[in-house]
Every structure is written in C-alpha cells, then in structure tokens.
C-alpha cells in the first residue's frame, strides 16, 4: 500500500491544520493558543514541502524549500513578539485567561 503520496501528505497537513485551528479557537490559556498557532504553521509547511517534492521534475528546483524557510523565520519572529506581548499582558493584568481578559460588558 502506497502511503507516501502527495495526497496523503496533503491530508495529513489538513488534519494538523484543523487540530491547530481547534486549539486556537477553543483554549482559554493564551500560551496554549500560541502553541496551537505553531501547529498550524507546521501543517502549512508540511503541505508546501509535499508539493515541492512531489512536483519535482527535471527542471524544477527547491523554491518551495526556501519559502518554508522563510515561513519558519516569520513564525519565529511572530512567536517572539507574541510572547513578549503576552508577558506584558500578564504583567498588567495578572492573568492570561481570554475570558477574563475580555473587557466588554454585556
């Protein structure tokens, strides 16, 4: 049984993306939300890599890999800044629960 195909890689990526989306929407702890965000990044990278590999033919090149590298870079930067913001929030409000952080009334 041939498991390692483009199709199954895409399916894997989608499942991971969905799991990450579930985490972002559902969890109230901001740290876990950011981790679920990383899962989503991962899923996207996986799909990109799958496409660059399985669409490779003689004239193709590794631009997909380069894009994945850039995405990882951006994810790192975003994680850094996001965590810094989270730390600031924690310093100001002493909690990182999204429900308690919401200041809307009614």
């Amino acid at each position: 049984m041939n498991f390692f195909t483009l199709e199954s890689s895409i399916i894997l990526g989608l499942i991971l993306f969905a799991i990450g989306a579930y985490g972002v929407i559902s969890r109230r702890n901001l740290l876990v939300v950011m981790m679920s965000l990383e899962i989503m990044f991962n899923a996207v990278n996986l799909i990109l890599m799958a496409f660059t590999y399985f669409n490779f033919y003689e004239k193709g090149d590794q631009l997909g890999h380069y894009l994945v590298l850039l995405i990882i870079t951006v994810a790192a930067a975003e994680a850094a800044v996001g965590l810094a913001i989270l730390v600031t929030i924690f310093r100001n409000k002493k909690k990182i629960d999204t429900d308690d952080l919401s200041e809307m009334k009614g």
């Binding site: 989306a21 972002v24 929407i25 559902s26 969890r27 109230r28 901001l30 939300v33 999204t98 429900d99 952080l101 919401s102 200041e103 809307m104």
Partner: peptide
C-alpha cells in the same frame, strides 16, 4: 460579534 474574546476572533478568521 464584538466579544473582546480572542478565541471568538480566531473563530471568525477560520
């Protein structure tokens, strides 16, 4: 729609 809750905003994104 405006809940101030991050999760709901993420939901809208998705």
């Amino acid at each position: 729609l405006q809940t101030g809750n991050v999760n709901s905003y993420a939901l809208s994104f998705i």
